[in-house]
Design a binder for these strands. Structure first.
Lengths: 207, 207
DNA sequence: AATAGATTAGGTATAAATACCTGATTTTGT
DNA sequence: ACAAAATCAGGTATTTATACCTAATCTATT
């Protein structure tokens, strides 16, 4: 019997998958969390699961963020990424953060079971998504965003102009410009739309 | 025993919810589809389910689109919307397309069961999401987008400028400006970011 | 053949976003 | 207490985006 923790912000998916894994047999979901922070708090004084099935985009603490934290503090704990998107960027981010495998929410339950068993036995799993990333050197250090930059990202996904954002954040429009300049550089994108897409794809801002 | 059809593009969620509903008892999932078109094709020569649990954003044929088609052709068939987003716009679009209830993927399984039973019995269900829409007259006719506008929407979610988009679409930059102007008006948004958010929230462009 | 509607595209003016500077103040680590 | 780093904000120039015109061309319908 393999024990699992499920981490995903959609209650319905989480509880459903727990039901599915129960029916398929061989797995026991011993904990569910709706974001990374809840998982970390749980791990402090409870028995660990064999595997963590982790969503990518979640509020409060995202998948990559949480996976990196786990690699730092509990390196033996095995994380399997569960994601909606095929985006190469997302795959790289999860895998370079320490995930052992990357599974799509599009996948069949049989694929899920196969992958969980494989990771449990060997510590990693072969799958089609991951090796499609060639020699590209992965920028393994995560992008660090300041609190203000995160607040700005929330507004940048709205129709508000920088002047309006400045009023809302009680700062000079120039400062807001500065946040944009800094994010364009940090995220490696070329326009406000690029920031918006980054924020959404990485779960920093909810759709 | 209430029979159900599940329509959602994420296999994992679909099959998991089928497992969940089986465990909770009282429901039988007799058909699953990954988009509206599959459901419609199925209905042509099969027995109907009591209820359809329908995702909003799906490829090929979306939730609102499918729900409208069902209201036209099989008005007795009851649709319950299942969505990731709280966006007022999305709620309005599903409900005015003929959905009997609107449920979040964040909800608890108990809430799901309650709502399914209620819709099955009374044809509608009370929930907190929907009545939060006051007197606002709902523009019940869906927003019609031309093919070119849809192509443009794909590019507008990238970092490309209108000059670049014009080259890609083999048209004058002025024409691209025209698409933007038209979409800003049609969608009722005020900037390019507004168009991006609309496209993503409505599944016109994939994240 | 005439009308309506959609598509494409030009003109012009203003507002917003981007790029790359600079420096003052505040926080943080040691 | 000191140095390093982050935060906030001003200057300036260029590029994009937005708003609101007009009009030629094509298509479908009556």
């Amino acid at each position: 019997m393999i024990t699992l923790a499920l981490v995903d912000d959609h209650t319905m998916l989480r509880k459903s998958m727990a039901a599915l894994l129960r029916l398929m047999g061989g797995f026991e979901v011993i904990f569910q969390a709706s974001n990374g922070k809840e998982l970390i708090e749980y791990l402090e004084d409870q028995t660990w699961p064999d595997l963590v099935l982790m969503d990518v985009s979640m509020p409060v603490m995202s998948g990559p963020e949480t996976t990196r934290w786990l690699r730092e503090h509990y390196p033996e704990l095995k994380v399997v990424a569960l994601s909606m998107v095929r985006s190469e960027n997302t795959i790289i981010r999860m895998m370079s953060s320490g995930a052992r495998a990357y599974l799509l929410k599009d996948a069949e339950p049989e694929e899920l079971v196969r992958m969980l068993e494989e990771v449990h036995q060997h510590g990693f799993a072969h799958n089609e998504m991951v090796p499609s990333l060639p020699g590209r050197t992965v920028s393994s250090q995560p992008i660090q965003l300041s609190d203000q930059e995160k607040v700005y990202m929330q507004w940048v996904c709205s129709e508000k102009s920088h002047k309006e954002i400045a009023e809302l954040m009680q700062l000079s429009p120039r400062t807001i410009d500065g946040y944009r300049d800094s994010l364009l550089k940090k995220l490696g994108v070329g326009s406000r739309v690029g920031i918006v897409m980054y924020a959404l794809q990485h779960g920093i801002v909810a759709l």
